[in-house]
Simulated scan of single mutants.
Amino acid sequence: MDAAEAETELKKGFETLEVVQKDRSVPVYHIYLNRPAQRNALTLPFFSELPRALAALDRLPSARALVISGHGPHFCAGIDLSSLASITAAPSSDDPAAVRELLRRRILALQDAISAVERCRKPVVAEIHGACVGGGVDLAAACDIRCCSEDAFFSVKEVDLALAADLGTLQRLPAIVGYGNAADLALTGRRVSASEAKAMGLVSRVFPSRQALEEGVAALAGGLAEKSSLAVMGTKAVLLRSRDLTMDQGLDYVATWNAAMLMSRDLEEAVSARLQKRKPVFSKL
């Protein structure tokens, strides 16, 4: 997909999302969960639309940083219960193994949609207000940076629906908040305030109001967008890869990465700009 095709794909629009560039002079795109009347509960179309939007933005040079947030009073209330019922509905079959394999494939497809946030080369910031529950935590945990307003609250709610969270929370949260905190959240399903989320590292910044959150995240994403895309995307790739490697393996991986990417025009521009005391102008990717 080239840039023109990416723009065409975004212009088709979405049922569950709104994708906008608020200021054409700032290479930041916002992905809004767009079912405010349902507290942005995630339906089946969302799981096909999110990867489609991210794939297009990944290839768009004017998108150097992304923000995921929600329209209305809440970030995300989790998976829509009617969608959950349709996911678990068993087809008519005489073979119980075939039924379970079909359900497994459905779950894997949903997981893949959330993992698309990590696969996107661009940095993704979660802007969280109000409820961030169940699938909302899955989505937030897949983002690179998480910020929230003081009214935000978090709950890994799946245990109260008699199931284990299966879209990435149990895999990603231990690396974010530590095993003990992750186990506490996942086993109890309790509600966590913004201040507690900050204390355990679930979010990195808390803002006093939703307006302050929007302004703060805009500044954060704008700052990311001003940096070298090569450096930012490389940092994201190495961080994600190193999460699953030993220290020595991670060091070897970044050495190999920089051996391939270090000698770039962006590096030359960064050094020249520093010496000339001016703002650098980096390549568009």
Results as ranks from 00 to 15, higher is better:
3 A>S: 13
6 A>S: 08
6 A>F: 11
10 L>Y: 01
11 K>D: 10
22 K>F: 05
24 R>E: 15
26 V>L: 09
33 L>K: 06
38 Q>A: 09
38 Q>C: 12
41 A>W: 13
44 L>W: 04
49 E>S: 03
51 P>N: 12
53 A>V: 12
54 L>P: 00
55 A>D: 10
55 A>Q: 08
56 A>F: 00
57 L>R: 01
59 R>M: 13
60 L>S: 10
62 S>W: 07
64 R>S: 03
64 R>P: 00
69 S>E: 15
70 G>S: 11
80 D>Q: 14
80 D>K: 14
87 I>L: 09
90 A>N: 05
90 A>V: 09
91 P>T: 01
97 A>W: 02
99 V>I: 15
109 A>N: 00
110 L>Q: 13
113 A>I: 10
114 I>M: 07
115 S>C: 06
120 C>F: 08
126 A>Y: 01
133 V>M: 04
134 G>V: 07
138 D>W: 10
140 A>P: 09
144 D>Y: 12
148 C>N: 02
149 S>Y: 13
150 E>Q: 10
152 A>E: 01
158 E>K: 07
159 V>A: 05
166 D>F: 11
167 L>Y: 08
168 G>F: 09
169 T>L: 15
173 L>W: 10
177 V>I: 14
179 Y>V: 11
181 N>K: 03
182 A>D: 11
186 A>I: 00
186 A>E: 03
187 L>Q: 07
192 V>C: 12
193 S>V: 02
194 A>F: 09
198 K>L: 15
211 Q>P: 04
213 L>S: 08
218 A>V: 11
220 L>I: 09
223 G>F: 00
225 A>M: 04
231 A>V: 07
236 K>I: 08
236 K>Q: 08
239 L>W: 12
244 D>P: 05
249 Q>R: 14
257 W>I: 06
258 N>H: 07
262 L>G: 05
262 L>H: 02
269 E>D: 10
272 S>E: 15
273 A>S: 09
274 R>S: 13
276 Q>L: 12
277 K>F: 04
277 K>W: 04
282 F>G: 01
